[in-house]
Amino acid sequence: MSTQTQSQSPTAALSASGVSIWLDDLSRQRLQSGDLDRLIAERNVVGVTTNPTIFAAALSQGEAYAEQLHALAASGADVDTAVFETTTDDVRAASDVFRPVFDATGGLDGRVSIEVAPDLAHDAAATIESAKALWAKVDRPNAMIKIPATIEGLDAIRETIGAGISVNVTLIFSIDRYREVIAAYLSGLEIAKAAGIDLSTIHSVASFFVSRVDTEIDKRLTTIGTDEALALKSKAGVANARLAYELFEQEFAGERAQALLAAGANRQRPLWASTGVKDPSLPDTLYVTELVAAGVVNTMPEKTLEATFDHGVVEGDTVTGNYAGAATVLDKLASVGVDYDDVTALLEREGVEKFIVSWHELLDTVRTALEAAK
């Protein structure tokens, strides 16, 4: 049954179905122009995620950052300091914009995420140190620190949560890694509880990437080329995410999680990331309308947000009744020769590498601006 009434916009219907809409973008220009306030008021946006690619794009557009970069150059700041200062200032300002949402939702939404430097992805100790520094610098309860779900990242997630810091776990591609992420979150909560930290103040989301799974698997299906293989194109991303939600339900119904929830802890919500459609032959709202379930976050680039607002059809929960079909999709992929474990391992490596490239582009942009401002 459709949950979208005639008087409701599709984004309002999505929110009414229990999906928190976060914008996957942030820039100082967006903050200064009032555009972020507009998206909160008109597009049901209740949070923001950032990453090195987003900040590289924002700072390359320059003018909004010119004054601050000039002052940093005059003070003799190096490039790492300048990046730290500019990005945390944006996240702090956005956190203040979202503070009414944070208060109204009891801390569930109104969240703004900032990522540790991606070249630390395989260094747990350095990631923990960076997460604590970013948390202290932003100094807002509605911030979230993004940590990639690498093997080393799991240790960092556990210790960062254990220190009472809210974490957005990013770059999750496989169900097995997601299971490990949930375990790291629960371990972190147990550490925090033992330290006397109020568990209700700690929030976390687990960012499960969607479109990149389809892009890689569809490439492999095209190479295989059989009718059976081609019939599976563009089905893996949604199926994988639906099975992630099934795991979320199972794990947080378990005895260990229930004991922590009873002590005031929050569930770590699944977040659908990489929701912009890469294949132009697909509906541009595919990774929104096919992944509607209560208690999830969908973080969208603005293009996907506007497409959803304009013509998204929201028909209630499209996840929980579809677990068997999703499992069948993955079984069929295996039967035609697609190696799921190889795909997800490759996507994790590529995800880290892409963010490292963006991070160095960001450093180069800021370095150039600092030199020009001297």
Rank of each mutant, 00 (worst) to 15 (best):
residue 2 S to A: 07
residue 8 Q to Y: 06
residue 26 L to P: 01
residue 27 S to I: 06
residue 44 N to A: 13
residue 49 T to R: 08
residue 74 A to H: 09
residue 86 T to N: 07
residue 91 V to D: 03
residue 106 G to L: 08
residue 106 G to M: 09
residue 108 L to F: 01
residue 110 G to S: 06
residue 130 S to K: 12
residue 135 W to I: 10
residue 137 K to F: 01
residue 137 K to T: 15
residue 139 D to N: 15
residue 139 D to I: 08
residue 144 M to T: 05
residue 145 I to W: 03
residue 152 E to A: 15
residue 153 G to Y: 03
residue 159 E to P: 01
residue 171 L to R: 09
residue 173 F to W: 12
residue 174 S to E: 05
residue 174 S to N: 10
residue 175 I to Q: 14
residue 175 I to P: 07
residue 190 E to C: 12
residue 190 E to A: 15
residue 191 I to W: 00
residue 196 G to S: 04
residue 197 I to W: 05
residue 198 D to W: 02
residue 199 L to V: 05
residue 201 T to L: 06
residue 204 S to C: 11
residue 211 S to L: 07
residue 213 V to F: 02
residue 215 T to G: 01
residue 218 D to P: 06
residue 226 T to D: 12
residue 229 A to L: 04
residue 229 A to I: 04
residue 237 G to H: 06
residue 238 V to L: 03
residue 244 A to G: 12
residue 244 A to W: 04
residue 249 E to Y: 00
residue 252 F to G: 09
residue 253 A to W: 09
residue 255 E to Q: 13
residue 262 A to P: 08
residue 265 A to G: 08
residue 270 P to R: 05
residue 279 D to I: 03
residue 280 P to V: 00
residue 283 P to S: 08
residue 284 D to F: 12
residue 284 D to W: 10
residue 287 Y to M: 13
residue 291 L to V: 10
residue 294 A to S: 10
residue 300 M to Q: 12
residue 316 G to C: 04
residue 320 T to N: 15
residue 320 T to L: 04
residue 326 A to K: 11
residue 329 V to D: 00
residue 330 L to M: 13
residue 332 K to G: 00
residue 333 L to F: 10
residue 333 L to A: 03
residue 334 A to M: 01
residue 339 D to K: 06
residue 342 D to L: 09
residue 347 L to R: 02
residue 348 E to D: 01
residue 351 G to R: 02
residue 352 V to P: 06
residue 354 K to H: 02
residue 362 L to Y: 04
residue 368 T to S: 11
